[in-house]
Structures are given as structure tokens and as C-alpha cells.
Design a protein around this nucleic acid. Sequence first.
DNA 1: TTATTTAGTTATCAAATGATAAGTAATGGA
DNA 2: TCCATTACTTATCATTTGATAACTAAATAA
Lengths: 145, 145
Amino acid sequence: MDKSSLFHQFVSFTATVHQVTHDLTQNVTIANITPLQYKILEYIKVSQPVTPTEISDCQHMSLPNTSRELRKLQERNLIEKISDTEDRRKQYIRLSIEGNKMMEEAFACIEERFLQLIQHATQDDIKDIQQALFILEQKVFQQKI
Amino acid sequence: MDKSSLFHQFVSFTATVHQVTHDLTQNVTIANITPLQYKILEYIKVSQPVTPTEISDCQHMSLPNTSRELRKLQERNLIEKISDTEDRRKQYIRLSIEGNKMMEEAFACIEERFLQLIQHATQDDIKDIQQALFILEQKVFQQKI
DNA sequence: TTATTTAGTTATCAAATGATAAGTAATGGA
DNA sequence: TCCATTACTTATCATTTGATAACTAAATAA
């Protein structure tokens, strides 16, 4: 087995992953949120509390643009900014009650669609899928370049 | 094992996939190509010949916008349009020599980075990865909603 | 203390992308 | 033949996103 043909399998796989995640997340954002804002909220949801700099790094956007989007999200009461007591330059961002509710609903919707995707999976299938996810995470995706 | 905790593992996994593919494809597009144009070329590369309608459907963009981007790509001699002899409304899009060369280089660059990612994988690891990709494709990603 | 660095903001501009209306030309059905 | 549909184009406008300069305030190093 050569690594080059594994590459082709990998490319095809990632294309499918992107396709499926697009389908799963399509139209979950009922509120008037831009795709970028959704991605930011999603990141805050799973990593809160986070600083603007962290968002900037992880979402590959400049700090000024991050600041702008966070301001819009705060104006819509979806997030809260809490300044660090130690270092008063720093801020911690977390979802507001409203923002959290919105993201919970979004995730519930995605989960529902995901469960449809694996509705025919047996208990053994589930175990296989879990194992496969684990192997890929460990042997491919958590490697550093 | 319940399906709900599998969902969380899945979400985390897809986030990692997006992260890694972003890193792999970063800065591969030396030519002055927008991200959208790159994605279109990538799709043409692996699926050619394709019609504008197919591109429109698969890339989730309107036909007018597809037409606009294809015009730009043709102006830069990266693609060719061939009209169908049967149905003269239809067109087939394929990469030009130049466009193909560009995409070959892009893929080579991505492959190089991918190989770095799995440089420490043994022959057994490769087999495991292959098997994991196969299982996920089959049991999760190829399911229809 | 003073200078430098860090964290974030505000403002502004340009480019990319999305949405929509109106059009052409070919096809296919009634 | 006439009408509806399909495939695609052109034009235009709005929105989103990216890039950059100039700024404030706090922390840290010299």
C-alpha cells in the first residue's frame, strides 16, 4: 500500500466531509447571522471563555475584523465581554443566555440531522465508527506539520 | 454506547478536519485566484467535464454567479468551454492545459504536506487509516438524509 | 521613569460573494 | 405552430469579508 494512493482517498474523503457538514449545518441559523458570525459563535460555544485574540487566531481573521464582528454580536446580545481582572487589556468572551439558547437550538438541529444519517447503524456499526474516528484523529489529524 | 455521545465525537472530528484541510490548502494558490475560484477549479479538476449547472449545484451558488466566475476563469485561460453537439444549450467545462498544470501543482503541494502529516506512520498504521476512511465513508458520509 | 510590547478598537477602503431581474437561444411538449 | 421549459448570460446592486492605518490603554522591560 503506497502513501500516494492514500492521499487520493484522503482528498476524496475530506471533500465528502465538507459536503456533509455543509448539508448538516444548512439553514440552522434562523437568526440573521452571517456565516462568519455563526462560525465565531460555534467556536465560542465549544471553547468559552475565549479571548478576541484566540478567536482571531483560530478563525484566521485579523484582530480588527474580529473586533468588528464581536461588536455586532454584542449589539445583538448574543455574547458578553468580561474584562480580565489580572490583565485589564484582556477580555473574555462568552455566550449570553440568548446566544447560548440559539446555539443549543442550532446544535440540536444538527444533531437531529446527524442521527438521521446513522439511523440504520447497528450497535456494532457505532463501535466501528467510533473506532474509525479515533484512529483518524490520532494517526492523521492530530499530527503537526 | 449511545448515539448522542457519538455526535459530539463527530462534531469535534469534523472541526479538526476543517482545520487540517485549511492548513493543507493554505497558500497553495500562488496565482491570483480567489478562494471560490480555487474551489471551482478543484471541482472541475476531479469531475471534468462538468456543466455550469453541475458546478452551480455542487458549489451551492446561483447560475448567474457561476457564469460570472467561469467567465473570469476563461479570460485567464484556466478553463475551456465546449458546447454540446447534441443539446446546444449545454456546455462542458474542462481545465485548459494551463489550468490543469496549475491544479497539478496545487495538488502536488497539498500531497507533499499530507505526506509530512503521515511521515511517521508505519505500514500497519496506513492500513488502519485506509480502513477507517473506508468505514466512515460507507457508514456515515455516504448516507442520504 | 521611559520605551516597547501587547490587547483590543475605530475607521476606511477594496475585493469577493450573494441575490435578483431581464435577456438569449435551444429544446420539447401540446 | 405556439408555448413552456431549460441552460446559460449579462447587468446591477447589496452584503460580507479582508486589509490596513491610526488609535487607546495596559503591561512589561530597560
